[in-house]
């Protein structure tokens, strides 16, 4: 975006348009390992993991009987995952998935909150690689869980729920096959990815356009433009608050849906 701003020519009447959405999501490589450019994104991905580790470590280091502030936050987060998601949704056999669900939730949460963290302002989950990776892990996990629990019957149950009339089998089979094996992982990944892309787009466009209306890249603008810029900026700040909610909610929903998918593999009768 900043690159686009530098390239725009106000005197020539060219409005600053980002040439492409990629400009908001792809950073210039800092250095190269062989052919692969290592950019800020890669560092942020590792940094997110380290932040999760540091946060959990800080919360659980002191095993005091009366919890400190950070400890009670960590404990309530773990309780949320363990009781509300693992136990309530998966039910029997849910305890085994608590480590996965917890790390999933924490990693996505930190990755999402990078969107609204000052000086970072870039959600790593808006790079399709991260949601896709996590959704594939969930995909493999629930398939393996289903096969281990039900054997070969898992796939028949998957496509034809028990007690289905024969006449409906082809249609339902096709729908269920597509919805379970294709739509599930894709929608899981795309939901997180698209939410964060949309959020990042909105935030950068609103805040940066507000900035340009007020300051206009070093050239003081016509005074009449300033109210427009202020309005944009205010609206952008409102969206900023909304994005915090979206970040938390999307992390929760991703974890919840992973749990639901695992649950349908473990208990097909529901």
């Amino acid at each position: 975006m900043i690159v686009a701003a530098e390239s725009c020519d106000i005197e020539g009447g060219i409005v600053c348009t980002p040439s492409n959405v990629n400009e908001l999501f792809v950073f210039k490589p800092i250095f190269y390992i062989g052919e692969i450019g290592i950019s800020r994104t890669h560092f942020l991905i590792i940094f997110a993991a380290l932040l999760v580790v540091i946060f959990l470590f800080a919360g659980l280091r002191k095993k005091s009987v009366v919890p400190s502030k950070i400890q009670s936050v960590v404990e309530s987060l773990v309780t949320l995952i363990r009781e509300d998601i693992a136990m309530n949704v998966i039910g029997k056999g849910g305890e085994a998935y608590v480590p996965y669900l917890l790390s999933l939730f924490m990693f996505i949460l930190v990755g999402n909150l990078f969107e609204v963290t000052p000086l970072i302002n870039f959600p790593i989950t808006s790079r399709i690689a991260i949601p896709l990776l996590l959704s594939l892990i969930t995909y493999v996990l629930f398939l393996v869980a289903g096969i281990r629990k039900q054997g070969k019957e898992y796939f028949t149950h998957l496509i034809w729920p028990p007690g289905l009339p024969v006449a409906l089998k082809p249609l339902v089979g096709l729908i269920e096959f597509a919805s379970t094996l294709i739509v599930r992982p894709v929608s899981l990944a795309v939901r997180l990815f698209a939410n964060l892309v949309a959020g990042h787009l909105m935030l950068s466009l609103l805040l940066v356009s507000g900035y340009f209306f007020i300051y206009q890249n070093g050239v003081w603008p016509v005074p009449g433009k300033i109210p427009i810029g202020v309005a944009w900026y205010t609206f952008g700040l409102a969206i900023y608050g909304f994005e915090i909610v979206v970040s938390i909610l999307q992390a929760y929903i991703f974890t919840l849906l992973s749990a639901v998918y695992i649950q349908t593999s473990l208990h097909p009768e529901h």
Binding site: I45, I46, V52, P99, S103, F107, I128, A129, L133, L134
Partner: peptide
Amino acid sequence: PATSELVAGIFAFAIVFFFVW
């Protein structure tokens, strides 16, 4: 997905998962 980011993601998630587990 960029392959390098995928690799970084696998690495990062592995760190988180093993730490949590």
